[in-house]
Simulated assay, not measured.
Amino acid sequence: MKLKHIYQLPGFLLLLIFAVACEDDAYEVPQAKREFQNDCIKRSLGPNLVNNRLEFAYAMALPKDMGKIVSAQVEASIPGVVEPVITNGTFLEHRAYSTDGGGNDKAVQVADPSSTEGNLTKVTLTRDTFAVTLRYFYKIPQEAKGQKVTFTFSATDSNGRTVSMKMGPYTISAMDMVLDSTVTDNTEMYISIADMATYTAAQAAAIPDKIDLVYLYRALVQQPAPAPALTFKHALVAPAADPVYLPGVTLPAGVNKDTKIIKTLNLRDQQLARLQYGIFIDDLDFEKLDTSTATNFAINLKGEAGVWVETADRQYRAYVYINAVNDGSKNMRISIKRLKMF
């Protein structure tokens, strides 16, 4: 019993020392620096795709008695896309935002709308401001595909002092993406991965070498004995697949590609699905894709499922995400990510 209490004594002393140390190190609010400061974070997530936007939050501040902020600007190493409607392209916000109790953004205008010329986007503040955070949106141009882009954020105060911060480099994906195409049985049922487009039979007949997938809807197909009944419903099938997987389909002349297909469940890429899932397919996923066990058909497809695809010439790999299916109208809404392999 004595030994037991002796072994407990060091632990008690450590707790006592820790308690005393905590009392000595009372927390104090840090003193604000007497200087013009800035900081920046990247808000957007996932692969950086052409025609999508990178989003940043740029914060600037100086002590109130040292002047006010008069301007801010961002210089991109590759000019971003500029749209006629400013907020659709590359721009620097002229409003500051706060969030209310419901999580909604509340805007206060602090500057004139931004202007973008070449690499440079800038705003001039119109209110007396000594601390503000502005959002910057960069719409990725085609010229940046597969390249790296950097950004230099800077601000100027009323005394001519400047601060700056460099962000990046950020790699721009080599992938392409198309959202919300509709394929319909017996009408627009032919899909080209090369074109990222859907076609009717008449249109497919003019470009047979570009057709990689056929969409069809069949409620139920009974195979000859002893094969079991197959539930088709919504299906994506290679033109070269066994005709049993293309019941009632007469392919246009020359449409004969043997596309590799891998059916996948629960891979809800956020950029394709635009749902809450934090999953992103990037270039590396396509580069590492193993198609050794692929078939050339996928039947009974459902909403929020998808298929990996490799074209017959192996030039393209793609992920076709199924946003929604409709049994009544016999169609699917799909979104596609694609990478050109060579």
Rank of each mutant, 00 (worst) to 15 (best):
K2G: 07
K4S: 14
Q8T: 03
L9M: 13
G11T: 07
L15G: 14
A19S: 13
V20K: 07
A21T: 09
A21C: 07
A21Y: 09
E23Y: 08
D25N: 13
Q31H: 12
A32N: 10
D39Q: 05
D39E: 08
D39I: 02
I41V: 14
K42I: 06
R43C: 09
L45M: 09
L45A: 11
V50L: 14
V50Q: 09
V50T: 14
N51K: 14
N52R: 10
R53V: 07
Y58P: 01
K64A: 13
K68E: 15
S71Q: 07
Q73D: 12
V74G: 00
E75C: 04
I78R: 00
V81Q: 10
I86P: 05
F91V: 01
L92S: 00
R95T: 09
R95L: 10
S98G: 11
T99K: 15
G102V: 06
N104Q: 11
K106G: 01
A107L: 10
Q109L: 05
V110W: 02
S114M: 05
G118Q: 10
N119I: 05
T121R: 01
K122H: 13
T126G: 11
R127I: 11
T129M: 13
L134D: 00
A144R: 00
K145P: 08
G146I: 05
G146E: 12
Q147T: 06
A155M: 10
S158D: 15
G160N: 06
G168N: 01
T171D: 11
S173I: 05
A174R: 14
M175P: 07
D176A: 10
M177H: 06
M177E: 13
D180I: 03
S181Q: 14
T184F: 05
T187R: 03
T187V: 12
E188Q: 12
M189G: 02
I193A: 06
D195M: 08
M196C: 13
T200H: 02
I207N: 04
P208N: 02
P208C: 01
V214Y: 00
Y215H: 06
Y217Q: 12
R218M: 11
L220A: 11
A225Q: 12
P228E: 04
P228L: 03
A229F: 07
L230V: 15
L236N: 02
A241K: 00
Y245W: 14
G248M: 05
T250N: 05
P252C: 02
K257I: 01
T259P: 01
K263I: 09
K263P: 11
L265P: 06
N266L: 11
N266G: 04
R268A: 09
D269V: 10
I281Y: 05
I281G: 04
D283A: 11
E287H: 02
E287P: 04
L289V: 10
T291W: 02
T291N: 08
A294T: 08
A298K: 00
A298P: 03
N300Y: 12
K302D: 03
K302C: 03
E304M: 12
V307L: 06
W308K: 04
E310K: 07
E310G: 05
A312K: 00
Y316F: 15
R317P: 12
N326S: 14
N326T: 13
K330Y: 07
N331S: 15
R333H: 10
R333I: 15
M341V: 07
M341H: 11
